[in-house]
Amino acid sequence: MQKKSFRVEEENSGLRLDKYLSQKLRNFSRSHFKYLIREGKVRVNYLPQKPSYLLKERDLVEVVLEEREFKDISSIRLDIPIIYQDEDVIVINKPPGVIVHPVKRGQPSVVGDLLSRQIKLANISSRRPGVVHRLDKATLGLMVLAKNNLSYLDLVSQFKERKVVKEYFALVEGVFPEKEGKIDLPLKRAKYKPRMKVGFIEAKKSLTFYKVLKEKKNLSLLLLKPHTGRMHQLRVHLSFLGHPIIGDEKYGGRKEGLLFLHSCRLGFYHPQNKEFKEFTLPLPLEFKEYLEKG
């Protein structure tokens, strides 16, 4: 069980209790806070209140982030490699073809593997325990999960404030005329398909920096640094420029049985001691071999 407390600011005086909490803890829905309030997990000046209670300046708001059981997650052991762990965080090397958290019963997943090994994960979300960011099912490489709720909130905040360092290797089709640059193209959800696309109306700013590391024939090995974290951002940006990632059939890449996109560097501030932790992985052998074949 974790507890968070807030002192109401002048500008938030008159705001509903449930709305105030949803603004303070943005990774939770307003309906979730209504549930917590009705369950007595939220108090104002040490007293229970209704979701519609109008706050006053200097009110003390306390919320208990309750523990939940992970009833819908199948604990299927996969022995995913652990790069680092302590009492607060765990960093893994996610293999390709494994989803981060299951969307239906019986699915093998990163979360299910860790739970099967008796590794404790933050339990704010019963559907996505410990998950503070995600990698696509086909993407491999570094990923961090939170082992308790305070670490979860801290890491989620770091991702939102873009304090986390993320870099990827990508093997793509074609040769770039400029060997270093940025891709500044807004993205939006495609209307009829579960994918993203470049758009200029009701789209979100999306920025990726790239550097060409090596070229051979009609292939380029890139180092990618996403400044924003949109769904499928790297894949869509490169596809739009005519350089789809090898193996990315969804966005126009050639079929290879492996998406050649690798999370190779991950850095964040430790939630407890605030020390900057950084992890790196070398270029996978499959990438080297494919590039050498040309």
Rank of each mutant, 00 (worst) to 15 (best):
residue 126 S to K: 15
residue 240 F to S: 00
residue 148 N to S: 12
residue 208 T to N: 06
residue 124 I to C: 09
residue 105 R to W: 10
residue 227 H to C: 13
residue 150 L to R: 11
residue 107 Q to V: 06
residue 153 L to E: 08
residue 175 V to T: 10
residue 152 Y to A: 10
residue 119 I to Y: 12
residue 207 L to P: 03
residue 179 K to H: 07
residue 163 K to C: 02
residue 117 R to G: 08
residue 231 M to I: 08
residue 115 L to M: 05
residue 112 G to N: 11
residue 206 S to M: 06
residue 212 V to H: 13
residue 137 K to W: 14
residue 223 L to I: 04
residue 206 S to P: 01
residue 164 V to C: 07
residue 146 A to W: 15
residue 238 L to V: 00
residue 139 T to H: 13
residue 239 S to A: 15
residue 164 V to P: 05
residue 206 S to I: 00
residue 233 Q to M: 04
residue 176 F to Q: 05
residue 132 V to S: 03
residue 130 G to M: 14
residue 206 S to D: 11
residue 185 L to I: 00
residue 111 V to R: 13
residue 206 S to A: 15
residue 109 S to L: 09
residue 214 K to R: 15
residue 117 R to Y: 12
residue 154 D to H: 13
residue 187 L to H: 06
residue 135 L to E: 04
residue 123 N to F: 12
residue 162 R to P: 03
residue 155 L to K: 06
residue 157 S to K: 12
residue 168 Y to N: 05
residue 210 Y to E: 03
residue 177 P to R: 07
residue 138 A to N: 14
residue 184 D to M: 06
residue 139 T to L: 10
residue 232 H to M: 10
residue 194 P to K: 13
residue 170 A to R: 13
residue 124 I to K: 08
residue 234 L to A: 06
residue 196 M to G: 00
residue 159 F to D: 00
residue 243 H to W: 04
residue 233 Q to D: 06
residue 141 G to Y: 01
residue 226 P to I: 00
residue 138 A to H: 13
residue 146 A to H: 03
residue 175 V to A: 08
residue 158 Q to S: 04
residue 208 T to L: 11
residue 186 P to R: 00
residue 108 P to K: 06
residue 188 K to W: 14
residue 118 Q to G: 12
residue 240 F to G: 01
residue 175 V to K: 11
residue 116 S to K: 06
residue 168 Y to P: 03
residue 184 D to Y: 13
residue 189 R to A: 05
residue 212 V to D: 07
residue 189 R to M: 10
residue 123 N to C: 08
residue 129 P to C: 05
residue 221 L to I: 09
residue 111 V to Y: 12
residue 141 G to N: 02
residue 191 K to N: 14
residue 112 G to S: 09
residue 187 L to K: 04
residue 123 N to T: 04
residue 224 L to N: 02
residue 116 S to D: 09
residue 135 L to P: 00
residue 115 L to G: 05
residue 134 R to L: 07
residue 186 P to Y: 04
residue 117 R to D: 06
residue 159 F to T: 01
